[in-house]
Each structure stands twice: as C-alpha cells, then as structure tokens.
C-alpha cells in the first residue's frame, strides 16, 4: 500500500517537473508551487482559460499595489 502511495507521489512529482519545464519553456513565469496549485485546480475542473485570466488579473493587481505606496495607512 505504502509503496503504491510512494509510486504515486513520485509520479506526481515527475508530472509536475515536466509541467514546470513546459511552463518555463513557454515563459509563463509561474513558480513551481503556484503551478502545482493551478494544476490541482484544473484537475478539479476549473476552466483553464478562466484560471489563466485569474493569474493575469492577480499579477496585474500585485503590480498595481506595488506600484503605489500602501494606501491603507500602514
């Protein structure tokens, strides 16, 4: 049982590696952790394009936030 579990984990690891390589190749700018989260979401049925839009949106948000000084008084 445990060996099967470990097999699974290594396989998942490999898959993630491959995906990460592709991601690098395509220049998506995602780190491994984020990628893992995204792939997990996609596997659970999230629309990939929508998710891509979300990522972009968040990046933009982050840019906008860092571009200006913190406004909420801190």
């Amino acid at each position: 049982m445990s060996s099967r579990e470990s097999d699974r984990i290594t396989a998942a690891q490999q898959t993630l590696d491959v995906l990460y390589d592709i991601s690098q190749l395509l220049n998506t700018g995602l780190d491994k952790e984020t990628l893992a989260t995204c792939v997990g979401m996609i596997e659970s049925g999230v629309n990939p394009e929508a998710l891509a839009a979300v990522i972009q949106e968040l990046r933009r948000e982050s840019q906008a936030l860092s571009g200006r000084p913190t406004t909420n008084g801190r």
Partner: peptide
Amino acid sequence: ILSRKHASLQFLHALS
C-alpha cells in the same frame, strides 16, 4: 496522473 492534460496545457499556453 493527470486526467486533464489538455486543460493544463491550455492553461500554460494561455499564460504564455
């Protein structure tokens, strides 16, 4: 492992 490879790929592509 993955059941939605095309979706992942599409996602990556869209981001790229």
